[in-house]
């Protein structure tokens, strides 16, 4: 097995395209909106921060607008011709291969597992985030326009919104920690390309399926 620490003697590292432009634009637009939502949400819900920042009405407006805008990058990015790469990635994230389950069962200890373009943890994170967005939109709307809803629904919506947000914080922090701890993976989302050796090591099934030129 190729190890990443082995130097590529007399060999120019091969670079492979991991994420196209549309996918990266959608990712960073999402990341920005999520950051705005998390920070404004924290100001609204965490007493000491609310006290420090004040201006509850303004913070609330920022939070609501960022929330309403959140689905936009994904919808626009996945539509049309430019969305082919993103749509195919959605397909890959959706499908859990036998090896993904094996990875979860052994928590990565089974060395014979051959992963595709996405790690099972990424698939879980993607599914959770994709589910969280409509749930947050629904419960957030009930909280924002409470007069149209039953009172117990308002309490229930607040409850769901708060707890999903708490789990989202952990999911996003985990996502950032993992990305920062693997600079090659991060480069894939910044510049679009990764080293061939990295792809072969971490995502062999994806690497081997790529057409070689």
């Amino acid at each position: 097995m190729t190890s990443l620490s082995e130097p590529f003697i007399g060999q120019v590292p091969v670079r492979v395209r991991r994420f196209d432009v549309a996918t990266r634009v959608v990712h960073w637009a999402n990341a920005t909106l999520f950051l705005v939502l998390l920070s404004s949400g924290l100001v609204l819900s965490f007493g000491p921060l609310s006290v420090l920042v004040g201006r509850r009405e303004t913070v609330k407006d920022v939070h609501v607008w960022a929330g309403l805008l959140l689905p936009l990058p994904v919808v626009v990015g996945a539509a049309g011709r430019w969305g082919r790469g993103l749509r195919s990635d959605f397909g890959r994230l959706n499908r859990w291969l036998a090896d993904d389950r094996r990875w979860f069962r052994t928590l990565g200890r089974d060395r014979s597992v051959r992963l595709g373009k996405f790690h099972p943890g990424q698939k879980l994170n993607a599914a959770f985030t994709a589910g969280a967005i409509p749930v947050m939109l629904l419960t957030g709307s009930i909280m924002r326009w409470p007069r149209s809803f039953d009172l117990s629904w308002r309490t229930g919506a607040t409850f769901v919104h708060d707890w999903v947000a708490t789990v989202l914080v952990f999911a996003i922090v985990g996502h950032i920690v993992k990305a920062v701890s693997d600079p090659v993976a991060l480069r894939g989302m910044v510049g679009g390309d990764v080293d061939g050796a990295w792809a072969a090591h971490h995502h062999p099934r994806w690497h081997d399926d790529m057409p070689s030129d």
């Binding site: 589910g131 409509p134 419960t139 009930i142 117990s152 629904w153 229930g156 607040t158 409850f159 769901v160």
Partner: peptide, 12 residues
């Protein structure tokens, strides 16, 4: 999420 909205008041 929908279930949580309906029974969340009691859970909360």
């Amino acid at each position: 999420g929908v279930g949580g909205v309906l029974v969340g008041a009691r859970l909360s």
